[in-house]
Every structure is written in structure tokens, then in C-alpha cells.
Design a protein around this nucleic acid. Sequence first.
RNA 1: CGGGGCGUGGCGCAGUUUGGCUAGCGUGCUUGACUGGGGGUCAAGAGGUCGCAGGUUCAAAUCCUGUCGCCCCGACCA
Length: 687
Amino acid sequence: MRYSQLLIPTVKEVPADAEIPSHRLMIRAGFIRKVASGTYTYLPLGLKMLQKAAQIVREEMNASGAQEIAMPILQPIELWHKTGRDTDYGETMCKFTDRHGRENVLAPTAEEVVTTLVAADVRSYKQLPLNLYQIQTKFRDEFRPRFGVLRSREFLMKDAYSFDTDIAGLEKTYKRMYEAYCRIFDRCGVKYVVVEAESGPIGGSASHEFMAPCPTGEDIIVHTEDYSYAANIEKAEVDSSTGVSPVSGCTGETPVLPTEEVHTPGAGTIEEVCDFLKTKPAEMIKTIVYWERDNTVMDVYKKTLTKFQTHSGQIEGLRDKFEELRGKSEPIISEIEASPNMEASPDWDKFVSQSKELVLKSFPPKSTAFYESGIEFIKARDRLANTAVMVLVRGNHNINESKLNRALGKNVEIAPEQVVQLVSRAKIGFAGPVGMWDKMDKFVKANKLIIDHSIAAMPVGVAGANKTDYHVRNVVPGRDFPLEGDNVIVADIRNAVEGDTHDGKTLQFSRGIEIGHVFKLGTKYSEKLGATYLDENGSAKPCVMGCYGIGINRIIAAAIEVGNDKNGCILPPAIAPFEVEVMILNNDSAEVVAEAERIYNELAEAGADVLLDDRDTRAGAKFKDADLIGIPLRVVVGERGLKEGNVEIKRRTDDKPTMVATKEAVAQTLKILSELKSAIRNPQSAI
RNA sequence: CGGGGCGUGGCGCAGUUUGGCUAGCGUGCUUGACUGGGGGUCAAGAGGUCGCAGGUUCAAAUCCUGUCGCCCCGACCA
């Protein structure tokens, strides 16, 4: 193709919002333009790269026995109701209501659709195994789209779904997909490592991610030095004995002191407390409150709180009066504000009778409504507090929510401020396990305390005191809070950190971009959607499924993220917008133009993907543009060289061009090109 | 969703604190001349309802209120 006729709007300056190299370069090289947050137009070169990558994916998928289909982007929400994933995916789904009031989603993925298809049209084991895929636009309303096309709201994904008769069949299909993925990324010339990922319903190593190693990647890869073990940090398992560094001042020989409450004003974060008490994060028992989100309970809580406050505000001088009465009797407001679980505590009856008596006596006219709203409020608070889960990890560790959810057997998320305050009876930053049990028996019965191994192994530590601006020293796990019991779980619930080991080998950390994911699904979808087949004996069984995704855009972005220099993109020919460029250096020289055209035509006839830079512009601009858009191989035809009967050939990665006789030019170019194309990188040597 | 920041020719920015000239600069774009091997020089041009809406004022890019959009950090993410 001719450069002069293509829209390749290269720019020197980029919008300030492009931060990482691939994003900046894709804009500078005229591959993409942003339309809105997380949505991009692909210009001719960008689209061409996408299509080249997609074609490689298509060829390898077909070679592995998969069949291409096209499913609709528009899906009815009902399908998602059937699998319950409408709530699982939640806000990430792009939804809209059509003119008939039907709710629709723009496909973030297609398990439901493809499984429904198979449920309707596959009957017999004779039709299995089956592997269906498509290369199609997906929509995800990301919380925060970023890094250009690496995390966008609309992207091109190859998604494949396999159906087998049994686990053994799935294993075979999975392996075939895994191998196809290796070939795909090899052919694309993108370096990758394969890591264990958060596993599905089958358990074990049921999921692998293909990661392009890269410092700006969003995913953290945890691996041993020799890569005999590599996993996403969400998955990485650590030896339970690690992370238990000795705690200063307590080696086990030192007698353990009783707990001691210390005043730590304003020190709510681990760092602040450590500064204040001169301790290390590893000696802190970090307490994070999670909850099973329940918006109804939260709404009731908020409403009853408002009502209660309104009523208490209606009685003039009520608060002052209680302050005055504080010494004489249990002060109602402070009790209510202090305890979320009064209803459950032994003091409850006493509280009810005392407060009623007190209120009625002091403020007869309006007190009934106040009293009743107070009771309602306390009940609502109780229910809210009972959604809580208290999670303990060391101060230098981070909670891994995937592991946490697995250990709990349910999904929880970080609790909102109200819940934390209810549970700890203090501002955020001062929650702790000590003492909660004496005062809150119902809390222990109804909620869970989940403790990381490394906490259980701690001899002594510092924890929040459940009192604003106070912490507790000399906390001994097992002595000052339980390590076993009905609602106490000790498990691996944290992210790996430096120094951890896996099977005794030290773990290292690096970053990567997830470009592919293979996943064993099992029968989760086939059961819910009725994708069954009849086996040899005529009995119906659910298909055993797998799913396999590749982010096509991410292949491109990852390639650029990894392959670039100050002059622009350095791309493998398999996905570069063009494999080779012939540059007409002196447009006013008929010989130069003729010779360049000749070489260009012959290269094109030989099957090369070739671009002719025929623009009547300065040489410098052409050189800059060729480098910027990442042309792997460049042939320059100029007056100077032509006088000697030569043209210049230069790889993008060469420092200097090589002079080649004009009659050798085409053959030589094709030779170098085939060398470049066959230079498949060994994934393990990529690290 | 929480915290922070930004919206001024295509792009990058100044001007806003302290209201007041015809709203500037760089780059890009158009035309011409000179040039011609790593984004050239000179000259002449085109291009802006200062995100939008309302308000204050003799006067608003500038002050006030509201609103929309975008970016960063965090939280979230088969």
C-alpha cells in the first residue's frame, strides 16, 4: 500500500492522559484515537494489527479443532438470571432497557449463550467433544478503564467454549487449548509466561493465565526463581510456616505479659501505630471488617437512624438531660451509640426497662415515639452488625479476597464505615479481636472470625482496642482471642509477600499483562442451562465445559509495551502493521521513484506485506514515521545509494543500514524478512 | 464509589489568585519561496460561543451556584 493514501496521523505530542508507553505510542503512531473513556477508534494501521493477530488466533484455533461461530453481542438479561451471574457480574455489565421494557446486556462474555445453544442442539455423546469460539467485541463497564486499550470498556476478545462428556475429555481439550495458546503467542512474537490462576469450581490447577511480562502490567506474578512454580498473586499459595518472622521482645522464652491498653491518639493506620509505639508492621494484628453486602439491611439501618435522631431532636434538651442523668442511671443514648448488640447482651432486658422508665419519667409527652424508634434502630443495627466478618492478618500482609471468599465459602467485601463502627465501637483504625467476645456473644455466634495462619503463629502482637484512639499490647493469639471454635477459621487468606516460600522455594515477584486465560468450568453452566447429552447407556449427563479467552487488543498493546524505544514501536513482523517499508527518499528523482516502485511491486508480488512511503516530504520525517509505527524492515531507495547501484536495508533494531546492490535488493529483503518471521522466542528464555 | 486534579484553536500549554487592551505562546494545518539523508528556514494565512447552564457586575476565561466530561490514586474485577 502507499503511505500517501493511508490515514496515518502520527503526532509528536500526545494527550497528557496517556501514561504508559503502549498507550502513548499507539496514539503517536496513529493506531488509535480515544472516543470516550475506555473506548477507542482503530485507525487503518491499528485495525490491521488487530486483524493480523486475530487471524493467527483463528488459524490456530481451527487447527486445534475448534469451530468458529458468531453469537450476538446483544443478550437478554434472562439468560443471566438463570445462572445467577447477573448479580455476580453486577455493575460490570453494560445494560440497557429497550423500547419494550426488556432488559438487555451487551455481552461481557458468552457462556450463557453458547451453553444454551448446546443445550438445544446437542443431544448425544456422539456429537461431543465440541469446541466453539468466536472473535468478537465484548463490553465491560469497568470501574476504571485505564492504560489505553489494556483495560477498556469495549474490546476484541477470542472466546472459546468446550464441551466434553467427562473430566478426562476436558483435560484433553484443555491441554490442546493450552498448547494452541503457546503457538498463538509464539507466532505473534509476544513473550509470555504461564501462571496458575484463581481456580474454578473444579479446584486444583484448573486455570492458567498467559502473561506478557512487563513492569507496567496490572497483574502480579509470584514465582520461584526457576519458574517451576508461577501463579497470579490472587492464587499463589504460600507455605503456612512462612511469614512468621520472630517478633522482637518475645522469643518464647520471655514471659508473656498480660494485655495492656495503650493510648494511641489519632494513630489509625498501621504506619501511624508503628511510628507511635515503635513497633514493626509484622508485629501488628491488622483487623479488617468485611461484610456480606446487604443493601436492604443498610437502608433500614439508615432510615431508622434518621428517625431515631429526628425523635431525639424533637425533645428539647433530651441529650443534655441524659448527660445530666449519666451518673444516676445507664445513659440511654450513649448505650445505644456504644453497642450494636444490646438486644443480644445480658443487659438487654435491663436496658429496656431502665430506659423506658427513665424516658417516660423524664419526658412524658413525646417519649414513646422516641423510645420506640430507639428500639427499632437498635434492631436494625444488630442486623447490620451481623453481616460482618472480622478478618485478621499481620500488619505487613494484605488480605487476598479470593482466598478469603474461598475460605468462608461466601462472597464478602470490605465493610462500609457504619458496619466497622458498629462492630468495633470505634472509629475506623481501632478494631481488634480482643474483648469482642466478652461483650458481644451474639456477634461471635452469628459472625465469623477468620484468621491468617501467620497470625495464629504469632507469639504476641499489637491490636486495635475497639476504642477510638486506643490499641492493645501483648496480645497473645489463643489466649486473648480464640483460634478455634464454631465461628473461627484459621486459613491462608493473605497475599504472598517477599520472603514467603512455596514448597520451600523462595518466591519472587514480577508484573505481567494478562493476554490469555484458559479455564476449566466443569458443569456449572451446563447444569443450570440444561446442556446435557445422552451417553452410551442412554442416561442424561451434563456436558463438562471449559472456556478459553484471548484479549486481541492486549496482544497488540503488550507487544508495544514490551517492544519500544525512544523512536517508537519495535514490532514483530507477524503483527506489525506492515512487514517491510520501501522508502522513496528523493521524490524528484525519476530513477529513485522507478527503482523504489520496482522493488515495492516485486516484494508485494512475492507475498510480502509491504508499504511504500511515496510521500513528498522530507527524509527525516519519513525515517521518524517508519520507526514510530514499528516497521520491522526498511528498504531505502535514495539518489546517493543509487549512484553506486545500491539500496539500503535496515532492520528496526539495527543501528546502521546495510548497502545492497539493487538487483539483490528484493531477494535479500525477503531473506531477512523470513529470518525475522521465524525468530520465535522461547517463552522460558524470555524471563 | 471514596480521595485528588484538569476542562482555553487539532495537540501541548500560559492567562484565573487580585474581573478590565483585539485571549496569547509552541506545535500542527493551508499557501508561497528557499530547501532536501533523521520531524528544516522565512513569509503570509485559516482556525477559539475559554466544557455546558444559570447568576453577580458597567464589564467574566477569571468571582458564585449547578451540571457534564476527562485523568490520576484507591476500592472493585470469570
